[in-house]
Design a protein around this nucleic acid. Sequence first.
RNA 1: GGCGGCGUAGCUCAGCGGUAGAGCAGGGGAAUCAUAAUCCCUUGGUCGGCGGUUCAAAUCCGUCCGCCGCUACCA
Length: 511
Amino acid sequence: MKPKYYVTTPIYYVNDVPHIGHAYTTLACDVLARWKRLDGYDVLFLTGTDEHGQKVEKAAEAAGMSPQAFVDKVSVAFREMGAVMGISNDDAIRTTEPRHKVSSTALWQRLLAAGDIYLGGYEGWYAVRDEAFYDEGELTTRADGSKVAPSGAPVEWVVEPSYFFRLSAWQDRLLAFYAAHPDFIAPESRRNEVLSFVKGGLRDLSISRTSFTWGIPVPGDERHIMYVWLDALQNYVTATGWPDAGAARAGFWPADLHMVGKDILRFHTVYWPAFLMSAGLPTPKRVFAHGWWTIEGEKISKSLGNVVAPAELVESYGLDAVRFFLLREVPFGNDGNFSRKALVSRLNVELANDLGNLAQRSLSLIARNCGGVLPARGAATEEDVALRGAAEALPALLRQRMDSQAFGDALEDVWKVIRAGNGYIDRQAPWALKKTDVVRMGHVLRVLADVLRVVATVLQPVMPGSMGKMLDQLGVPSEARDLAALGTALAEGTVLPAPQGVFPRFVEEAS
RNA sequence: GGCGGCGUAGCUCAGCGGUAGAGCAGGGGAAUCAUAAUCCCUUGGUCGGCGGUUCAAAUCCGUCCGCCGCUACCA
């Protein structure tokens, strides 16, 4: 039986407009999912949308629609984004689905049975204008004695009945959990932040509301609806069919990886494991918090009008170039800056010149001088062994990179081999061997074809379309494109199709 | 304020106790199979400042300066 791998994106809040940040998170998960499939795993890759909450209720009202009709409409944008980015998710969960109501209700009952839920009152300074609660310390007192939020909105003291989760009781168990699972939170700096937060003490968590109704009712007390994160986080479990132990996907929980933006790290690394442990469910193995993108040096913001639509980028530069750029440009986990200049540079230098051109020059030499068929392997020289060895080391190397979500390092590893390939072809000069040693020329071209095959194979998760084309040109059968297949050499004499450039250079239109 | 991190070549970053590295950008040369692509060589850094530990410090400790993150209930 294949080993299982379960990776999730956050569920995206439908009130947002999908932008490059959402695309980035989802893309990272997609590459992992594709990599694991390539490596023989049975993969469950989940994304989805968070469709409950007061903001949605209000937005629906403003649009003159029922909340359900509203979310049916706006959630489409996120599924379209997935299609545009070439995302290979197995499921796209929506928190408004019946299966999720069943699962969230069951979770609540588990927490209740564990004695971790009690009825209390949620009170605090609330600004109606901001629809938000504020801490005493955040407020400013005006001359007339009234208090205002940092936004300047007036606040009032409100009390609302609410169910609470006994998070305060979980501090020690959480700290023990982090200690026992040092890889649970990544990157390291984020782990430190979470540890420091939990060590500072935990307060009980309000997990229900009565002030609006668009949510999942609390079992046994339907005046309340479950609040935000309890319902939202549970989606990851819902998708595995829980609480039906016989569900087809039952074996996928716990997730191997929750990919999140750094803004929602705490919910995934503090509340979520506490909920799960309380419910007697296994905890996810790892949560990775990636960084943010700025656009041409500026924060992404609607008011700046610099929100970059993924579809527009794909339209301008091509899907694979965009996918490559996002994972290549910035060490994963760091913040990064998106600039068109940098994207064009990566596309032209690394994709077109380094990789595309290496394939094109190698393949056209084979087409012209080897009758268009794959030459045989021959006695290997020291240089042949070195280059072939570097390529053959890639799968094992990338396995480690992928398991630590080091996409940038993974791509750098591959590019070292590609650069070495260009050095090799220059030194071997098969175009000169054509006149002096045709047999050796064939052997050299075969080394290049073999190296390109490995490179194209391991790059498929990042650039599925263009690497598929490259494998076509290398004569690799569609059933021989996974990592395991790399152990079997291609048959000499395989007829290769006419080579065609895979990555055209991007030329700015003359103005 | 508290806790944590960062500051290394023009740019983006790796190195984290043993004579400063990569990619890009800049300069010179070679080649001409190839997407005017490629290859080779090369300029460039007192590794934020100051002190300390050590035979030896980007690398450990202290301190100062400058940035950044976290410091709970909008998803």
